[in-house]
Design a protein around this nucleic acid. Structure first.
Lengths: 152, 152
DNA sequence: ATGGGTGCAAAGACTTTGCACAGTT
DNA sequence: AACTGTGCAAAGTCTTTGCACCCAT
């Protein structure tokens, strides 16, 4: 069982590149569950809540699904991860918040998710904002289809 | 109570611009519930299942929510309407299928939905398809923000 | 008469919440 | 001691499904 200083150390790693004082500011605690979940999201690419739950349960069998949901909300609030809705079915996936803005392409057959960048999206945002008079806060862009292996 | 020839007439109107024989082909029946629902979707702009249910219930109080859901699925299968997921919350809305491909912009304050066209989206689709090797079947694009009246 | 359509209620998938207990500070 | 975080179970939201009855063909 890791002691608390080990945890702090690990959490510092987790916090690389994000606003450091968020945890202490909000009085949020660094728990094993949280470390585990963040770690799995970081490794796992694109996971939904249930996938994350099952993976985490392999390591901590006593972990509960509500802890997963609660902490996903927390991580989002803290800006550590993003929730993305992929494909026309709009399922929710989670991924670490990276510097590069990107969008998603999902294979309808095997479920593989590919990220792509889209410089046009920013242009689009300001163009649509100008023409509509809206102040635009968010953009949702994803595509779906069949990947090279599945499309034949 | 409208007789069946009236209903056929009305349904023909509904079918303007879509593949006409779909109903007869599939043996789908023209019912008052279906006429009402299609009519409300046509008038209503962007409705979700519950909004549609409540509007329809004002006219036919005995209508059930499952009929709404069942017929939304049906209309989608027949190509009469589109299901769109708007905003980062990904709520499902329904609208008549028009000729012009368009996307949606929703006000986070008043809920107003504005349609916009995006010639770039088609380009984007083929570009992403080329670069990724995917065969792309669907694209999901929407934005959210605050409309002119709400943004101050 | 036949077979699809509807209302009702129940079940499903996914997510949130209330509560008592456990672990940190 | 005070308070946050967790597990568990219950409740919530949105959608689908099973079944008996109804109605159009």
């Amino acid at each position: 069982m890791p002691n608390i200083s080990t945890m702090h150390e690990k959490m510092s790693e987790e916090l690389q590149g994000s606003k450091a004082p968020v945890f202490s500011l909000n009085g949020q605690r660094i728990t094993r569950q949280r470390l585990l979940l963040l770690d799995l999201i970081r490794r796992g690419g694109h996971l939904n809540a249930d996938e994350l739950y099952r993976k985490a349960k392999e390591i901590r069998p006593d972990l509960s699904l509500s802890t997963v949901y609660r902490n996903l909300r927390l991580f989002i609030r803290l800006g550590l991860i993003n929730e993305v809705k992929i494909g026309t079915k709009g399922h929710r996936y989670y991924e670490v918040r990276g510097a590069i803005e990107h969008y998603h392409l999902v294979c309808l057959s095997c479920g593989r998710v590919v990220e792509f960048q889209c410089p046009l999206a920013e242009q689009l945002k300001s163009k649509v904002g100008q023409e509509s008079g809206f102040y635009i806060t968010g953009i949702e862009l994803s595509m779906e289809g069949y990947c090279p292996s599945c499309k034949t």
